[in-house]
Design a protein around this nucleic acid. Structure first.
Lengths: 238, 238
DNA sequence: CGAACCATTGACCACCTTCAATGCGAGTGG
DNA sequence: CCACTCGCATTGAAGGTGGTCAATGGTTCG
C-alpha cells in the first residue's frame, strides 16, 4: 500500500542492517528494526492478518503482493488496495485491524511489534510525523479510488487501474508499457467495484481497440498510452 | 471529517484557552493553538481551500458543515466526506491540498499555520503520533465509504448513509432518530456515487416503506432503525 | 492426463441513469 | 403583501450500462 515514505531509498538488504544484526548497534530507525526481523513466507491466498485481529505487528512486504480488503456479511468484497515490496501494511490507530491482508501469490513479509514502533517514537519526534506522512499517502490513494469507484464507468475504471499499474512499473525502473498482473480478475473486479465478467469484457474491448495487448491473461502490454489516458478521464465515447 | 482524536473532550471555548490568550502562557497543544486563532466565517458554497492550493493551514470546523470533494476534468464530482464542528480538515502530507473544501451552509472555521504544527511536533513526540491517529480514522472512514460505493446497491448506500448520520447525532448527545441534513441531495448523491434522482427516489421508497419520515426534505426521522440496518447490509430484497 | 481454477464469451434482464416536467420553498423586488 | 424567480426536490418515462446466469476455453498443477 505504502511506498517509500519512510525511507526514500528502499532496498531489501543494506550493509548497515547487517552491522546491526551482528549486535554492534541497537536498531534505531523503523527500517533498521525491520531488517533485523526474520522473513516470513506466506503462500498464495494465505492471510497475514484478518479483520478484527488485534493489531500487534507492523508489516513490511518483502516480496510478492498483498491484497487488502473488507467483506460484507453476505460475502461481497471490496479490495482497498494492493501492497508490493517495500510497502508497509498494518498501519492504523485502532486496536484491531479494520481489513484483511491476503497474499495474491507466494509472498514474503517482515514484521515488528507495535510496541517497538512506539518505543522508537518516544525518543524520535520525527517518527510520528513520518508515520503520519506515510498513512496520509494511503488516504490520498483511498480518495483516488473513491473517485474511481464512485464516478467512473467500467472502461474508465479499468483504464485508470492499468495506468496506475504502469506508473508503478515505471517507479520501479521497469518497462512502463508491460504490466505483470499479480492478481486475479476477481481481485481487480472487487478493487474497481465491477464483476469478473465486466473486467474481462473490458480487457477484451481494450484489446480490440488496439490499446492493449493480452498475450497472456496476466500480462498486459500498453500499446496506446495516450488513448488509455483519454479513456481514463472519459474523453471519448466507450 | 475527523473527530476528537486530538483532544478527547472538545469544547469551543475553554478557560485555559482564555488564560493563554491573555498572554500568561504560550500555546503548547494543538487545540490551544486553535483557541487562540480568530474565527473565520464562510458563506454557503464558499470554499475554505481548493485542490492544488498550497497546504498552508490546518483548519478546525467551529460551526456549520464542510464538504470535502474531488472533481474530474469533465465536472463529475466525488464527495469524500463531510466535516462538522470539532473536526479537523486540511490534514495530509503533500505540499498541496488534494481535495476541495466547500461549506454546505454558513460555517465558521479556525486555522493555524502548518509551521506552528511542526514547531509543536518538534518538542512533543506525541503530537506526531496523534496526528497519525487522527488521519488513520479518516482512512478508516474512506475505506468504509469505498465498501459502500463499490459494493452496495442504491438502497443500501442511502441506508448506510442515514445510519452513519444517526450515529453522529447520537455521539453529539442529540436524538439519534432525527437527522437534520446540512447538505443537498446533490452532495449526498456525489458522496454515495448516485444521481440526485436516485437519492430522491430512494428516500421516497424508504418513506413508503414506513422506515423513515420526511416532513421536510432536509429533516429525516428514522421510524424503523432495525429495518434500516437490515437494508444497509443487504438482508432483504430491494 | 485429468482436475481444478481462472478467464472469456454470450444472452438476458435489472438497476440506475438520463432526460424532462412539475412541485416546492426561500429570498427578492415591485 | 404578493408576484416573481431561482434553486432544490420530486416524479415519470425511456434507455443503457453493467450484473447475472450459463457454457466454453485455457492454463497450471498434481
Amino acid at each position: 500500500m505504502l511506498s517509500q515514505a519512510l525511507s526514500s531509498s528502499y532496498s531489501p538488504v543494506r550493509p548497515v542492517a547487517q552491522a546491526r544484526r551482528s549486535g554492534a548497534l541497537a536498531p534505531r530507525t523503523l527500517h533498521e528494526h525491520f531488517s533485523l526481523a526474520p522473513i516470513r513466507a506466506i503462500a498464495a491466498k494465505e492471510h497475514a492478518f484478518t479483520e478484527g485481529d488485534p493489531r500487534l505487528q507492523l508489516y513490511r512486504v518483502e516480496a510478492g503482493a498483498i491484497c487488502l480488503y473488507k467483506v460484507m456479511p453476505d460475502g461481497r468484497r471490496q479490495v482497498l488496495g494492493f501492497a508490493y515490496p517495500g510497502d508497509l501494511i498494518g498501519l492504523g490507530a485502532c486496536d484491531l485491524h479494520h481489513c484483511n491482508a491476503q497474499a495474491t501469490k507466494p509472498s514474503q513479509l517482515r514484521s515488528i511489534p507495535w510496541s517497538a514502533v512506539q518505543r522508537v517514537a518516544r525518543h524520535d519526534p520525527a517518527l510520528g510525523l513520518r508515520l503520519y506522512e506515510a498513512i496520509s499517502l494511503e488516504l490520498a490513494a483511498a480518495h483516488d479510488l473513491l473517485l474511481t469507484t464512485g464516478q467512473r464507468s467500467a472502461v474508465e475504471r479499468v483504464a485508470t487501474f492499468l495506468l496506475a499499474m504502469a506508473r508503478r512499473s515505471q517507479r520501479n525502473g521497469q518497462d512502463a508499457t508491460v504490466i505483470d498482473l499479480p492478481m486475479t480478475r476477481a481481485d481487480i473486479g472487487d478493487f474497481l467495484g465491477l464483476t469478473i465478467e465486466t473486467v474481462s469484457r473490458t480487457f477484451t474491448k481494450l484489446r480490440q481497440l488496439k490499446i492493449i495487448d493480452l498475450a497472456q491473461s496476466a500480462r498486459v502490454r500498453i500499446l496506446d498510452c495516450g488513448a488509455l489516458r483519454g479513456l481514463a478521464e472519459g474523453d471519448a465515447g466507450l
